[in-house]
Write a protein that binds this DNA or RNA. Structure first.
Lengths: 224, 224
DNA sequence: CACACCCTGACAGTTTATGTCAGGGTCAAG
DNA sequence: CTTGACCCTGACATAAACTGTCAGGGTGTG
């Protein structure tokens, strides 16, 4: 059945973030290259984020392509409200992302359903005098965390004394309004936590750290 | 092309929450009833939440069936973290819903992608001495809000003085740890806000209120 | 420039889908 | 219990869609 092969193509491309040629897909799925070209045209006409480039191959546009999902009303409440919370608590980049994601989900709902959410009966707002601006370093830290890139950070402790160190960023935790960066400190060879608002500067090292038993976030959780 | 008709069937059923007969779909899509039966079997084999009952017709299982969506990494961070926040801030029902929704999304990610999120590099936790238990009335209020059902509430003001009134629940707002119910008060003929933790009791009236200009949540927002 | 690869039309042959017919089952209302 | 509405599936002839081969044209990279 052709429809299964269309989904199979998307699955293989989700697995393979590198460009993949029509020839490779054709062999894997036991069809001709011409059929793959046809399937790609069909997928694109259906709106799938697939792009092909001569000399390169096919790949999914960056991001995460989720298949159809089914949520009950409570679950959708949780998603929408969660993004409301983020839009007032995260930094600008994360807040904008929450708005975008929320819009995508709402756009996918039907008009009658949308009323339950788009008119926003559920809200998260901050009291103006309580919420400090999230650190501008939050997003670059989040990015380094995702990339698993070591950071050189300048940190001020309670006495305003500065120190620098090389860390592996492992996790970010929000305690109400305080963001805490959990890291493996290379110079101390141990886990350390840093308040993001006390990090004065970060410098990306370009140095990717490997997965290493004993130095992962779940290892830190085991110490608690 | 068949795949388009399969999606068309799902779209029509999203629009129509009542059961719809194969005959109706067949006429609408200009195919035979037998073809609709085949299409339904195909959709079910693909996991679509479609159920058919003799004498009744076909309908989608309750909930919200979202089509394939594409999120960039920041957007997915926002979604996952938002649900983390909800799981520590909402009442038990909303928190459970957040956990379930989060699990569905993570299950839909590929293993390589899942590592970015399932190992939870982003967290939301509460400091144990700061978070009061969310009111047990939160979920029934949320349900009434969704159903647009008038409530009879017993409210205690700052002086512990009780009063009862009939309200139209219009919106729920979370200020950090305080949930505020925005309502149209039928006896005062005006908007009123009630802290959920000061609501002693709610009694569902079974009375559905219509959409009425001047008495909606966005009308309240206009007064600010 | 050469190589890798995307892209599309045409056509004959192959495969899948469709509509009709027949027969069996469930649910709800009277 | 009966009746009507509607789901469900197999069989078969016919129609439609799909496939592979061939040909020709375009883009990106080293």
């Amino acid at each position: 059945m052709r429809i299964l092969r269309l989904f199979a193509i998307l699955d293989r491309m989700r697995v393979n973030r590198r460009p993949v040629s029509a020839e490779t897909l054709a062999q894997a799925l036991d069809v001709s290259v011409r059929t793959i070209y046809r399937d790609m045209a069909t997928l694109q006409s259906m709106g799938a984020p697939v792009r092909g480039e001569g000399g390169i191959g096919y790949q999914l546009e960056k991001g995460y392509f989720l298949p159809p999902l089914h949520f009950d009303p409570d679950e959708l409440d949780a998603i929408i409200l969660g993004m409301q919370l983020i839009s007032v608590r995260g930094d600008e980049q994360l807040a904008n992302a929450a708005v975008r994601a929320s819009a995508k989900i709402k756009a996918a709902l039907l008009e009658g359903e949308r009323d339950n959410f788009a008119t926003s009966p559920l809200h998260a707002v901050s009291m103006p005098d309580e919420v400090p601006a999230a650190s501008p370093l939050l997003s670059p830290i989040r990015l380094a965390l995702r990339e698993r890139m070591r950071l050189n950070i300048t940190y001020k402790d309670l006495k305003e004394k500065s120190s620098t160190r090389i860390i592996r960023p492992l996790g970010l935790t929000v305690f109400d309004r305080v963001w805490l960066l959990t890291a493996w400190c290379e110079s101390k060879s141990d886990f350390r936590n840093f308040r993001v608002d006390r990090i004065a500067e970060i410098i990306k090292t370009g140095d990717i750290f490997p997965r290493e038993t004993g130095k992962e976030f779940h290892d830190f959780l085991q110490t608690l």
